[in-house]
Amino acid sequence: MSTSEDESTEAFEALLAADDRIEPRDWMPEGYRKTLIRQIAQHAHSEIIGMQPEGNWLTRAPSLRRKAILLAKVQDEAGHGLYLYSAAETLGIDRAELLDLLHAGRQKYSSIFNYPTLTWADMGAIGWLVDGAAIVNQVPICRCSYGPYARAMIRICKEESFHQRQGFEILNTLSHGTPAQKAMAQDAVDRWWWPSLMMFGPPDDESPNSAQSMAWGIKRFSNDELRQKFVDMTVPQSEVLELTLPDPDLAYDEGSGHYRFGAIDWSEFFAVLKGNGPCNEERIEHRRRAHDEGAWVREAASAYAAKHAARPAAEVA
C-alpha cells in the first residue's frame, strides 16, 4: 500500500470513528463502495418491483377515496426507487446498468414482493406489516455512514409513515366490519405475518456479512434486534385490530419485556429467494415488459430534446 493510500484509509477510518458521513467524492475502500452499490441498488429495485403487488388492486379499490390513496402510495414507491437510484449513482454507477442487472436477474429485490395479493385486505396487511417491517429496517439507515443513502432514507421514512397508517386503517375498517370482512382481514394477516418476520433476514449467527456492514456504519442493528423490535411494536397493534397473529408460541415475557415468538420456517424463505416463490417470474417478466414497451417513449423524448437543442436560439424565442 502506498503512503497516500495509507493516508486515505486513515482519513476514511477517522470519519467513521467520529460517526461523520462519507460523501461521494471522498476516498473509500472498494469493498465499501461495492457493498453500498449492491445494497442501494437492490433496495431501489425492491421499491419499483413493490409497485406491482399493489398496482394489482388499483382498478378494484372499494371506493374512490381508497383508490386515490393507493395511487398516491404506488407513486411514492416509484419516487423511493428514484431517490435510491439517485443515491447509487453518486457511487459512480449508471442507473441504466443497474436496471439491466435487475432485468437479467443478476441483482435481486426483496423476496416479500414475490407473494401474491389475493384480496383487498392484502393492501391493508402490506401497509401495516410489510411497510411496518420496512420502517423498522429503514429508520436506522437514516444514520448510515454514506451521506447520500442516509439522506434518501430520511425522505423515504417520512413518507413510509403514511403507508403504514393507511394499511392499518384498511385492516381496522375491515376487522370491525361484517364477519366476512373480518375474515378477509384475518386471512391476509395469516398470510403476511411470517413473510414479514423473514424480511429481517436470517438469525444473527447465520449472517456473517453483517459484522462488516456494522463496522462500516452501513448497518446499525442486527437482524434479530430489528425483528424483535418489530414484533414488540406490532403485537399490541394487533390487539387493537382484534386480529390474531398466526403464532401459537407468541407470548409476552415479563422478565425481558419482549414478546417471544415461534420458530421461523427458513426453508420457505430460501425457496422464495431461489426463485420458487409464487410470483418470482411474473414480477420480473412484468418489469421487463414495462421497460421494453416504454422504450419508444424514452426515444421520442430524446428526439424531441435533440430537435429543440438543434434549433437556432432566435427561433426558440
Binding site: T35, R38, Q39, I40, Q42, H43, S46, E47, G50, K108, Y109, S110, S111, I112, F113, V130, A133, A134, N137, Q138, I141, M153, I156, M198, M199, F200, G201, P202, S207, P208, N209, S210, S213, I218, K219, N223, L226, F269, F270, L273
Partner: peptide, 14 residues
C-alpha cells in the same frame, strides 16, 4: 447464503 436485511425492504443476498 450471505444476506443482509439492511437493504430496507428486506433481506436480499449480497
Amino acid at each position: 447464503p450471505d444476506l443482509t436485511a439492511a437493504g430496507g425492504h428486506g433481506a436480499v443476498p449480497v
